[in-house]
Amino acid sequence: MKIEYCKDSKTALRIMTEHLTQLMQEKGLEPFNLALSGGETAKQMFSLWVEEYRDKIDWNALRFFWVDERCVPASDSDSNYGQANRLLFKPLHIPEEHIHRIKGEKEPGAEAMRYSWEVKEYLPLFNLMPTFDCIILGIGNDAHTASIFPNTMELLSDSRSYTVSQHPASHQFRITMTGTLILNNSPLLIPVFGEDKKAVIEHLADRFSPSNDTPAAYILSHAVDATVYTTE
């Protein structure tokens, strides 16, 4: 794991985006399979991409997937897909066939299974599981990542690709990528900003241990290629 310290969040997102474009160039002409997260940092990222990278990235080469999704309709303000659609896909005229969304309005268990099959059919396999060309993760104040929370640590080693989780405070159901899929040989790019995240960042440099047993620490301790982008 590497931690890139930058002067501000916009600079950090630029450096992360340059890393993403490098990965795209290394892959070449094939479609590039990217898994997105939602949240406030994602909003900043989408806005930056539209403002500064409209003509610098081959958007037609990208195929978009999701790390996790809240179990709400796409029209709901909580929907990660809805957020990306408003801020990124529509402004950049991304074709619908390039977007593989989790249908948060469907029954969670059935949708987690359906999406697992969609991802498995579309992506190349590594260790008999799908593998993404890049995964952009977020980290919460409680050091959760994807929708794997400190009280659902078993999802870190779940053998499925996607499953159902539940937010410990709101009890909202979510569909989430498991730790097994996150760690299946994909480069991880992780932007983490905000004063409320500084304590989380301090602990990320420590390896996963009984005193640092959070989902984020586990993922970063086991990832083959993970870079955190944050502010000084």
Rank of each mutant, 00 (worst) to 15 (best):
G179P: 01
G140F: 08
S211A: 12
L88G: 07
T176Q: 05
A223S: 09
K103T: 13
K90S: 05
R160S: 11
A217M: 03
T17V: 10
R70D: 00
D58M: 09
A223D: 00
P124W: 07
M24D: 04
P215N: 02
L48G: 01
H98I: 06
N80A: 11
T21S: 09
L92W: 02
E107L: 13
H93S: 11
V192P: 03
I15W: 00
V50C: 08
T11M: 13
F65T: 12
Q22L: 13
R160L: 08
A217L: 02
M45Y: 10
E40Q: 04
M24L: 11
I148K: 06
H171S: 10
F64K: 01
K198L: 00
W117G: 04
I102C: 10
N185D: 06
H203T: 15
A35C: 02
I201L: 05
S165D: 00
S159F: 10
E4D: 02
P187R: 05
I182N: 05
G39I: 09
M16E: 00
R114K: 09
W66V: 13
R70P: 06
F173Y: 14
S186G: 00
M153L: 15
E26L: 15
A205L: 01
P31D: 04
F46K: 06
D142I: 04
M129P: 11
T152K: 07
